[in-house]
């Protein structure tokens, strides 16, 4: 329990930081991205001792039940799919909304408390090979419904999720071609492309 309050405080600070720091107060992109990288890395650990996933449904089940329970300390209240790549997760008392008093004024504030989680789920799925769009819908605080739309065309993407990050000057990124390596061996480099 005690770590949870630390996380809740950190989450609140991250929300403030991201919104104060962006030019547009409604820009939740950074917040979503912080969630994305967290989810991407975290799922690597959480699936370490789990058997291979058979298909998309099995992966989705893992994310919406096991992963959710581990992170949010409660099970989702409802999980549905239309079997065409659309999944809906319903949480009647979403952790980051439980501390907010219900009301229409507060409802306007709701998106900033769910953006991190949208990114978290998208990041976890992305690392497991599922390219998706995650959105959230809050009608009455603290209930929340997450819509996960699987993008089935982009199945074999070359790390486009991190490309956004790579374009920024802090990191130098190399263009990498698929499987054209071990062609030349040089003393100074292990592989060439």
């Amino acid at each position: 329990m005690s770590e949870e309050i630390v996380f809740d405080c950190l989450h609140a600070e991250i929300v403030n930081y991201c919104l104060n720091n962006s030019k547009d107060q409604n820009d939740l992109g950074t917040l979503e991205y912080i969630g994305f990288t967290t989810g991407y890395r975290l799922i690597e650990r959480l699936t370490r001792d789990v058997g291979r996933f058979k298909d998309e449904l099995e992966t989705m089940k893992f994310i919406c039940t096991d992963f959710w329970t581990l992170i949010y300390k409660k099970q989702v209240d409802n999980l549905r799919t239309n079997n065409y790549g659309m999944y809906v997760v319903q949480d009647k008392a979403f952790r980051f909304l439980t501390r907010i008093s219900p009301g229409s004024k507060q409802l306007e504030q709701a998106p900033k408390f769910v953006a991190f989680t949208c990114g978290l789920v998208r990041g976890a799925l992305s690392n497991l090979g599922i390219n998706s769009t995650v959105t959230a819908e809050v009608q009455t605080i603290p209930a929340c419904r997450f819509h996960i739309e699987v993008n089935r065309d982009g199945h074999h993407i070359l790390f486009s999720p991190f490309a956004k990050l790579a374009q920024r000057p802090l990191f130098v990124r190399q263009l990498r071609l698929q499987r054209i390596w071990i062609c030349v061996y040089t003393q100074c480099r292990l592989w060439t492309y």
Partner: peptide, 14 residues
């Protein structure tokens, strides 16, 4: 490998 991925300065795919 999982520990390395959790290094925030590691960009997955690099």
């Amino acid at each position: 490998y999982t520990d390395a991925v959790c290094n925030p300065f590691y960009i997955p795919g690099e």
